[in-house]
Amino acid sequence: MIGALTLIFCFQLLGETISHLFGLPIPGPVIGMLLLFAWLSLRGQLSEGLERASSGLLDNLTLLFVPAGVGLILYIDQLREHWLGIAIVLILSTAITIVGTALTLQFLQRLPVLLSHKRREEAHE
């Protein structure tokens, strides 16, 4: 468990180092995640400790966002002043993005099936 946590922290540190060294806009933890994913894929196996450490961190991941979420308290006045415009943009564009992405992916996923159906129909004619 401690070994697994050490590994996770090392990958974060590695990610932070790469991000700073090359002045990348991508934050260290995201780079660390991609590197750990690459490393696990190369190694081809997952230790039990790593499984436990990750579920410890991820099972209640939403809890970790609470302190940042409470930070909206600092902007309550600005938000109140422009609330209608902000609400319209936030709600509508978030809804459009979720639905648009989901339907696009669903369509792409079914595309090969649809195409092979069409080909079969054409062959029948």
Partner: peptide, 30 residues
């Protein structure tokens, strides 16, 4: 908020390693 975040900020620090740990469910579903 400063008083709050000075104490609860410890939770926020864990977001970093938690992001790295997302590699594990990704690998499991590779």
């Amino acid at each position: 908020y400063e008083t709050y975040i000075a104490q609860a900020g410890m939770l926020q620090f864990l977001l970093g390693p938690a992001t790295v740990a997302l590699a594990i469910p990704m690998y499991r579903n590779v």
